[in-house]
Design a protein around this nucleic acid. Structure first.
Lengths: 210, 210, 210, 210
DNA sequence: AATGAATGAGAATTCATTCAT
DNA sequence: AATGAATGAATTCTCATTCAT
């Protein structure tokens, strides 16, 4: 949830408090709504309905539906970035890094997932593809970037970086998605699977001639 | 005056011809539009704009945007099914099958890709996630099903089938996507990569205790 | 039905025959459709669907939906006019005329009614007002005219002619409507009722001072 | 600053005021439009055009054209019902009742008529049949019901109740219509006419054998 | 700031009419 | 003439955004 920063920040008058809370409320509602019906189908009224606020108030905080979308992306990215960075710091090598990043991502995923009521009401045509949420897309970009980063400067890996990045992100994405849809959710198991899938495949990959 | 009936394309009046062309034109336009902006964002007008036809004509052929969506899915599935089935027949074992299926899918992908102008014009918000096309979703479902099928009845594979299927489809999806976005398109290279990624990872996977 | 004149007219080539038949077929279909759903709600396709003809053919015979409406009016009026005229000739006095006119109208009504399948399918909001058919309106105008006519030149009737005409037409209309909705249809009974209602009321009416 | 709450129209904020006015404006416009071109032909745009409001506003107040229709019916019925009930109470016998009901109806008619600008602008195809307004139909139903009611429980009247009701309503309807189209409007005269027409005709009616 | 009604551009769909065959 | 697909204006309705209170 996005209220991490809203409380106890020094010099927060009651007014400022309320403003921050409302901002967060809108983001939370939007998160849920986008997850339920996708960005396009979601209406501003859908969002504020999950809120104590009025349509007007919505536009006091965000200039448009799109701005909320972006705020959501930024928010997620902002929260996920330090976690990923920490993994990066702590990592000894690529294998270590992958394990850390996947772990971080899967845990993040579970937290997010919990925070949605996931009302998942009517005929959801794309059940396996409701992670095109602004949040997730932003996080994917991060992970993608960091994987590419590690691979590029990594020890003599002469594989196709584009493909490997794509594969890593793909595995993380789909295995993660599968994970949160099972009961009970076993994060470690999923991490193990994804990690072994990636790292095990690695030695077998065709070498690039460059 | 004598050759009216002699043109030996069976049962092809000029009228019927045009109708088939129009039907195809709408499908093609819809394909492109869905690929460019996604199903939800696409409007009927967007579709017919890429066509010589009028709004009315659209509704002569399809009752709604959704019907086009389904036609597109059916179409893809229909074309892809036999190819996949052939691979299944020819396959000796899982490895064989995977290679065949991936190969078939990547070739299919290239064909599809070629058939779109891929105008990919302006504000493309999700460049890396535009394979949630009806076409692709239908094909994914196919591949997913057949992989699960092979895995299930396969020789003593005691891995998590859900995860493995997810991973396979994920790799195929994203590597394929990456492939078609590069110039020149090297199908074989991509197939090699994906296949090795999957098969190489296999032995390393955690065994299920069941 | 409108095919009274279509057969055996001298000098009718096969072509002319067909044309007349088609014309009549359209009118018949339109009659039924207008009766079922009203002029506004009826579509040209609704009309031709009850026909062997194509949309194009429709416009070969009539320039517009409205023209059919008018043709229907004309047609009815043309068929009803001589009947009414005959009554007028035969009538000795106002009472005689009223009886004759009402009788003619009610019989006409029953014929018309029979000629419709009266599919009367779905939610008909105005069951008591589906006699605003072009046909009926035209006939009403006729009757209205002739009643006014008789009254005006009639023997010293010093009543309000406008009102009396209105009342006569009203009674004829509604009693007639009621009649055709009952089973079995008893024309004579209805005629008796309407006639007595009108004629019985007559002596009681306030005299105009002129 | 002190009198904000003191304005003693009970619970009437300016906002509420405006809303009520808009609601009424839409109803008025709809009344006029339905009267001018009939329910079927009328479009929502026709209605809001006679208003200061926008299309959107229409849908803030009513969900569809049909809902306006119903609101109109309800409105009329609601206003007319008590008047009719009062007549029913006051009436000594059938004759009394008829006079009262007709009188009430004609007065109601004049009020309604006055409240419309009756723009009756262009191509008015059915000048003599524009009382198929939701308003009027609702009122007819009322009158019809109450007449049938009185007749049924009335003293030994062995006439055909269906026909008599139809005839009464018919006379009221058409004479009323004629009345409001004349200048000057003389309500009493019209009432006299209609009442005598009905009551005078009564003794002459054929008896039912039951 | 908060409210929620008003706005109006734009979406889906229908249908009278035209026109190529 | 007959056919029926094509056209596009017109209709209903939605929804992001603005604005008066």
């Amino acid at each position: 949830m996005s209220d991490i920063v809203t409380l106890n920040s020094p010099a927060a008058g009651k007014r400022e408090q309320t403003k921050l809370q409302n901002r967060a409320a809108i983001l939370d509602a939007a998160r849920a709504v986008f997850a339920d019906m996708g960005y396009q189908a979601a209406t501003v009224r859908d969002i504020i309905r999950r809120t104590n606020l009025s349509v007007g108030a919505f536009y006091n905080y965000y200039r448009s539906k799109e701005e909320v979308y972006e705020a959501l992306s930024d928010d997620s990215a902002r929260r996920f970035r330090p976690i990923l960075a920490a993994q990066y710091e702590a990592a000894k090598d690529f294998q270590d890094y992958i394990r850390g990043a996947i772990g971080a991502y899967f845990n993040f995923l579970v937290e997010e997932h919990d925070s949605w009521q996931s009302s998942r009401a009517e005929g959801d045509r794309h059940p396996h593809l409701r992670n095109d949420t602004p949040e997730m897309l932003a996080v994917f970009d991060q992970v993608r970037g960091s994987i590419a980063d590690v691979l590029t400067k990594g020890e003599g890996l002469t594989v196709d970086v584009d493909y490997l990045t794509a594969a890593c992100i793909a595995i993380a994405r789909e295995v993660g998605e599968t994970m949160v849809e099972r009961r009970p959710i076993k994060v470690d198991e999923a991490v193990e699977f994804a990690v072994h899938m990636i790292l095990g495949g690695l030695p077998a990959l065709p070498r690039t001639t460059s």
